[in-house]
Structures are given as C-alpha cells and as structure tokens.
Design a protein around this nucleic acid. Sequence first.
DNA 1: GATGTCAAGATCGTATACGATACTATTGTA
DNA 2: TACAATAGTATCGTATACGATCTTGACATC
Lengths: 228, 228
Amino acid sequence: MDTQATRSDAIYYSLRRAIIEQALLPGMKLPEDAIGDQFGVSRTSVRNALVRLNAEGLVDIRPNRGAAVAEPTLEEALDIFSLRRCLEREVVGRLCRSITESELAELEAHVAEEEKAMDTSGPLSMRLAGEFHILLAELTGSKPLVRYVSEIVSRCSLILALYSRPHSGKCGVDEHLQLIDALRKGDPETAMHVMEHHLGAVQERAQIRDPGDAPDIRSILSEYARTA
Amino acid sequence: MDTQATRSDAIYYSLRRAIIEQALLPGMKLPEDAIGDQFGVSRTSVRNALVRLNAEGLVDIRPNRGAAVAEPTLEEALDIFSLRRCLEREVVGRLCRSITESELAELEAHVAEEEKAMDTSGPLSMRLAGEFHILLAELTGSKPLVRYVSEIVSRCSLILALYSRPHSGKCGVDEHLQLIDALRKGDPETAMHVMEHHLGAVQERAQIRDPGDAPDIRSILSEYARTA
DNA sequence: GATGTCAAGATCGTATACGATACTATTGTA
DNA sequence: TACAATAGTATCGTATACGATCTTGACATC
C-alpha cells in the first residue's frame, strides 16, 4: 500500500492527496525539480505524475512554463458542480436497483468514520466526505463511473478550497445519513432528490471570494479586529 | 494545427486519431520503441502521450508490460454507453436553453460534411459522426463537459470497433438532423428523447465480433506519422 | 506428451544530460 | 524617475543510457 507499483504512481497519489486535502492550494506552482527532490526521485517520474493530474483537471500545464495546481474559474466551478449532479444522479439511480444490505452497512461504517473525524482537523474530514461519494460510485460496480466521479469529486475539493469560506462546518454528515436512508428505501425519485439537495448544500457552502489578487492583509484582519 | 506545441502533443493527437479511426484496433500492443521510431521521436515523448491516453481510458498500461489499445469488456461497454446517455442528455438540456440560430447553422454545416463523407471510406465518416457530438458539447460552452463528452465519444468509437459489424451503414446522419430540429424547437423533453433514441440506435448497431490478429504497427502508423 | 526451469531477447521504469524557452533582475538611457 | 535592453537564472522538453522486469522459446524432467 505504501509502496506503489511504480514511483510515478507514488508521486501521483501523493500529489493528488495533497491537492485534495488543500495542502497544495490552487495556483501554487509545482516545479518538477523541487517535487523530485522532496520525494527523492528524478524529474521523469514527477513529470509522469503531473501529466496524469493534468489529464484529470487537477493541475494546469502550460508548455515551457511548468505545472500549477488548477484554478477553476467561477464559471467552471458551476459547470463542474452541475456535471457532478448529473453523474451522481446516475449513481443513486443505479444503486436503488442494486444495493444490498451489506453494502448499506459499508456506507454506514464510512459515515461513522466521518463522524469520528469531525472533531479533528479539517483535511481528514474533507477527504472522507469526498470518499463517501466515491464509495457510492464504487458500489455501482461501474469502473468508468467510478473514474468520473472520483475525478469530479477531486475537482470539487479544489473548488471548495478556492471559493468556500474557511470554516464550512460539518461537511454534511447528516445528509450522508439521509442519503443512506433513501437508498435503503430503494425509491429512485427520493434518493435522487436527497442527493440533489445534498450537492446543492455543498455548493451553497461555497461562497465567492475574489481569487484574483493576494488577499489584502486588512481584509483578513478585519475579522479578527472585531474580537480583539 | 499541424505543428503542435510539443512533440508529446503531436504523438498524442496522432495516436488518438489512429485509435478513433480504428486503424489501431483494441488489444493492439503499443510498444514505445516502435512508435518512437515511426514518428521519429524518442520514447520519452511517446510515453508522455501514452500516459495521457491511458488517463482517458483509450489505452491500458500495465506496469512493465507495456501499453495496448484498451479492450473494454461488454459490461464496460454498456456502462460507457449508459454514461454517455447521461452526459449527452445534459448537453441537449443545456443547449435547448441557449442555442442560437448561427450555432444551429454550424451544426447543419457539420452534418453536410458528414453526408459528403458517407460515400467515401469509413474512418472519416466515423470520426465526423463522433465530432458532431463533440461539437454539440462545445456549444454548451462548458469546458469540463466538452472534455468528458470527447473522452466518452472516443471510447464509444473504440467499442464500436470491438463490437460492431463491419459495415454499420450510414452512421445516423438522419438522426443528427432530427436532433438539430429538436434543438431548434427548444423543447428539452423532445430533444432529450431524440438524443436518447439516437444513442440507443448507435448502440444497437453494435454486435460482437472477433477482433482478428494484428497487422504490423509500423505500417499502420506510417500514414499517421506523415501528418504529425 | 505435459510440465517445469532457465537463458536470451524484448520492453519497460527511471536517472541523467543537454539544448531551448521563459522569467528576473540589473544596468543603461531618455 | 520611468522604461527598454540584456545577461543570468530557473525551469522545461527531449534524447539517451542503464538496470529491472517480463516474455519467449528451448531444453530437461516427470
């Protein structure tokens, strides 16, 4: 598990996780040399990983100018959320017809982990929230669907990093439980509606923050000045 | 257009086209050396291209065993078509709200090309049929949607190569015209239904066929290397 | 005849090297 | 002081080299 098949894979997964957990923020440069040094591999492997991340839209690569964590525009962000609703509707639609009790238990176990992580730091709970949706996709048994959902969930994490306010609170653990209930009932209409509502809520927690210029120190401190 | 920014890009597009036009058939091995020789570049650039194609599901890469044109199973094929319906429903849904008369004309011009290509050889008309759907996605103005549709249309071409009978006849030019009509009317229900019917028909033309044994990869690529 | 073993060849993963391109900071000039 | 030219640095694109892994076929053994 720790040791991937190839070093490129290892780099790929590490960078991916770092981006999803928002350790690497949108717009941050990703120089091949620096990454290679850090992981103790050559640029070759790093390049390989960056190409893959670029293919799934997590990093931008501009010829001769290097790679950087992608910075979706607000317009793209809305598109991606719209696409996500489309795909996850498909997921729950399929699951309503096929899901078993043991799979439902698996989902509940995952949510239990999410609850446990709520108290701890943000990155973990953010990742778990995303993985819940990926788990849903996996239960459909459709590999292409898993790939698309994984990809789009990652990109949504990126978007939340860009546009959400610092503390979005509990990331919809309750809503995940509601979703499980709906799936257990097996009614596609209800399940899709709950999913729709959940994704709407996730998106709603996002708020426009001007991503363009470096945040002005006064605006950052204004919030703290109040409590001083 | 002919000269890409980087050689990797050139290889990527050439291989992609070769796969979509079914010059490279599913299961065919893609040795880095042979491809590099044919295009006059080193393995480095070829690898880069193969990684990208792997990311979009057109080629399989197994560690230390090389790359090969992907061979979707029948089950995966059905999944992909199902996903395609899901995505393209989204496309026509959006277009009904936004499409302009000049864009409709653009679509009609494309279909005209398709009609012209009907008499000529198969590869061209097959590619144009796919590009019609990509053009539809582009008209939504949503880059992510374009990416997903492009990707999935490519994979459908692959699937048709695997499972369709040799001559599928005219690849739904009439249906494309019907779709344009529906879009012009601007009624989402009708348009989605027409799209659904069209994609169902495309899928229906698919039938299992035994993928024969392999011709030499160099002779196939000699034609593609020229235009790279 | 079937199966296991092993060596030779093919192919890949990765490191390194070199030329090319883009960025940066300094200097000179208006 | 403001701006343009330029040199220097950083970073990338690509080629090549070497060790590692896999495949293939021959041969020995059961």
